[in-house]
Amino acid sequence: HMTFVALYDYVASGETDLSFKKGERLQIVNNTEGDWWLAHSLTTGRTGYIPSNYVAPSD
């Protein structure tokens, strides 16, 4: 899985979304859904959809 880092805080707007904090590391499970990607937080262990423009590839 690709690892990304959150650029901003995001508060989930629905049950399927994943809240995260700036700097949180996320594994992308599925990024074929356009602007919303299914991600797994390496910080909280939770999985949900995130806005793709809130994250950047982590080196």
Rank of each mutant, 00 (worst) to 15 (best):
H1G: 14
H1W: 14
H1I: 14
H1Y: 15
H1S: 14
M2E: 10
M2W: 08
M2D: 12
M2R: 12
T3Y: 15
T3Q: 09
T3F: 13
T3P: 06
T3D: 08
F4W: 13
F4E: 01
V5W: 06
V5Y: 10
V5A: 04
V5E: 06
V5H: 05
V5I: 14
V5Q: 06
A6P: 01
A6T: 06
A6Y: 00
L7G: 02
L7P: 02
L7N: 04
Y8I: 06
Y8S: 07
Y8D: 06
Y8R: 11
Y8L: 08
D9K: 02
D9N: 07
D9E: 07
D9S: 07
D9W: 01
Y10T: 01
Y10C: 03
Y10R: 05
Y10I: 01
Y10K: 03
Y10L: 03
Y10W: 06
V11G: 05
V11I: 14
V11R: 07
V11C: 08
V11D: 10
A12R: 05
A12S: 11
A12V: 04
A12I: 03
A12T: 04
A12C: 04
A12F: 03
A12N: 05
S13M: 13
S13P: 07
S13L: 12
S13Y: 11
S13W: 09
S13Q: 15
S13E: 12
G14V: 11
G14N: 15
G14A: 13
E15L: 15
E15P: 13
E15V: 09
E15A: 08
E15K: 11
E15W: 08
E15M: 13
E15D: 13
E15I: 10
E15Q: 11
E15T: 14
T16F: 15
T16E: 12
T16D: 15
T16Q: 13
D17Y: 14
D17N: 08
D17M: 14
D17P: 03
L18V: 06
L18F: 09
L18K: 02
L18I: 11
L18Q: 03
S19E: 06
S19Q: 05
S19F: 05
F20P: 00
F20I: 11
F20M: 07
F20E: 00
F20K: 01
F20D: 00
F20T: 02
F20N: 00
K21G: 07
K21P: 01
K22L: 05
K22N: 04
K22C: 05
K22V: 08
G23K: 01
G23M: 03
G23E: 03
G23R: 01
G23W: 05
E24L: 00
E24W: 02
E24Y: 01
E24C: 02
R25A: 09
R25D: 05
R25Y: 14
R25M: 15
L26S: 00
L26K: 00
Q27A: 12
Q27S: 12
Q27F: 10
Q27P: 01
Q27R: 12
Q27K: 11
Q27D: 08
I28C: 04
I28D: 00
V29K: 09
V29N: 06
V29G: 05
V29D: 06
V29H: 13
V29R: 07
N30A: 11
N30S: 14
N30R: 08
N30K: 11
N30P: 06
N30Y: 09
N31Y: 13
N31G: 13
N31D: 11
T32C: 08
T32N: 11
T32V: 10
T32F: 09
E33K: 11
E33V: 11
E33M: 14
G34A: 14
G34C: 07
G34K: 12
G34M: 10
G34H: 12
G34D: 13
G34R: 14
G34N: 13
G34W: 09
W36R: 12
W36S: 06
W36E: 04
W36K: 10
W36I: 07
W36H: 06
W37H: 03
W37L: 07
L38I: 07
L38A: 03
L38C: 06
L38Y: 12
A39S: 02
A39Q: 00
A39W: 01
A39M: 12
A39R: 00
H40V: 15
H40W: 10
H40Q: 12
H40M: 14
H40D: 03
H40T: 15
H40N: 07
S41H: 12
S41V: 02
S41C: 04
S41P: 00
S41F: 01
S41M: 02
S41D: 04
S41I: 02
L42N: 06
L42T: 08
L42G: 04
L42Q: 07
L42D: 06
L42I: 11
T43S: 14
T43H: 10
T43W: 09
T43I: 13
T43L: 12
T43V: 12
T43M: 09
T44W: 02
T44N: 05
T44F: 02
T44D: 05
G45A: 04
G45W: 04
R46P: 00
R46I: 08
R46Q: 13
R46K: 14
R46A: 13
R46V: 08
T47H: 08
T47K: 09
T47N: 06
T47F: 11
G48V: 02
G48R: 01
G48I: 01
G48H: 03
G48Q: 01
G48Y: 03
Y49W: 15
Y49I: 07
I50Y: 00
I50W: 00
I50V: 13
I50H: 00
P51D: 05
P51Y: 05
P51C: 05
P51T: 02
S52G: 07
S52E: 04
S52M: 09
S52R: 11
S52P: 07
N53I: 11
N53Q: 10
N53M: 10
N53G: 13
N53R: 13
Y54Q: 05
Y54T: 05
V55L: 08
V55E: 02
V55Q: 02
V55F: 07
V55Y: 04
V55W: 04
A56W: 09
A56M: 11
A56F: 10
A56I: 14
A56D: 06
A56V: 14
P57K: 09
P57A: 11
P57S: 08
P57Y: 09
S58M: 15
S58Y: 15
S58K: 07
S58T: 13
D59T: 13
D59P: 12
D59R: 02
D59Q: 13
D59S: 13
